[in-house]
Simulated assay, not measured.
Amino acid sequence: MSDFTANTSSPPQEATFGDYLALLKPRVMSLVVFTAFVGLMVAPQGVPPMVGFTAILFIALGGGASGALNMWYDADIDAVMKRTSGRPIPSGRVAPGEALGLGLWLSALSVVMLGLAANWFAAGFLAFTIFFYAVVYTIWLKRSTPQNIVIGGAAGAFPPMIGWAVATGGVSLESVLMFALVFMWTPPHFWALALFMKSDYDAAKVPMLTVTHGRPHTRKMILAYTLLLSPVAIAAGLTTIGGPVYLAAAVVLNLIFVKGGYDIWRRTEDAARADDYRTEKKVFRFSLLYLFLHFGALLVEAGLRSVGLGGW
């Protein structure tokens, strides 16, 4: 962690509950909760509702713990990026030590309680996920390689596997494909963002692909990853968690996403600047819908199977 000094240009403000909640990155946590919930619901073995609720709660807390640890370590970066300068630590509302303590305490609590409520395999998986995000991605990869999002994306892809492990106590092809769906989606999603947020990454000296290899290369890689993602997404529909509803959704969504990747690839920087990166922003927004609808379709298939109508 680089030397960090909170913004002292204005009188310090007392932290509110909302500031501590912001440390947990609630928007990221919502993705963790949703994909973990889907992983739990599509598993072949069911769990009692209270066990399922408790498991998802502590998976969410584990995701929040990762966010707090990330904000603690990245406070110096956050302070110079427009998008993040208002976060609780760089704004001086929360002390770095408080964020670190919260992150460590929630990490221990979430792992132990998930083990007691569900099983220790799932708890160990959660512990590894927190470690991967806080140490492998935040401390090591983020500041050292343009592959930070590619490799580090695994941290955000583990939750559906954890949800599956809560129900089954293990790993299967289906859970690996859910992981692969999120893992392959992460680079084009973040690189689309980086195309119109490049000045932030330049200022913070974060080696995002747009900084180290330039925007034209990033555009090529977005198209490449949307093409590689498509067969992974469709393959999940051919397993026991898939079915005609999911497969139809996957085909349509991936055609749209590949078209978006193609539109980004063929754009020149002059054209992008002229319309304020309209296409890149459109693809970024669609990428959020893309992931939600894939996992939503898996949930629909699980519901249909429960009444004897879904699946193959």
Results as ranks from 00 to 15, higher is better:
1 M>K: 08
6 A>P: 07
8 T>K: 10
11 P>G: 11
20 Y>P: 08
21 L>F: 09
23 L>Y: 01
26 P>F: 03
27 R>D: 09
28 V>H: 05
30 S>V: 14
45 Q>V: 08
50 M>T: 15
73 Y>A: 02
74 D>R: 03
76 D>L: 04
76 D>V: 06
83 R>I: 03
95 A>Q: 11
96 P>V: 15
97 G>I: 06
99 A>G: 07
104 L>N: 04
105 W>L: 15
117 A>G: 09
124 G>Q: 02
125 F>M: 13
125 F>Y: 10
130 I>W: 05
131 F>I: 04
138 T>D: 11
141 L>A: 00
143 R>L: 07
158 F>L: 06
165 A>S: 10
167 A>D: 03
168 T>Y: 06
174 E>Y: 06
176 V>M: 08
179 F>Y: 02
180 A>V: 12
187 P>F: 07
198 K>A: 12
199 S>H: 08
200 D>G: 00
203 A>C: 06
206 V>W: 00
211 V>S: 13
219 R>Y: 05
221 M>K: 15
224 A>W: 11
224 A>Q: 12
241 I>A: 11
243 G>N: 01
244 P>A: 14
250 A>F: 01
254 N>H: 11
257 F>Y: 15
271 A>S: 14
277 Y>C: 10
279 T>P: 07
281 K>Q: 13
284 F>G: 07
287 S>W: 02
295 F>A: 00
302 A>K: 05
309 L>E: 06
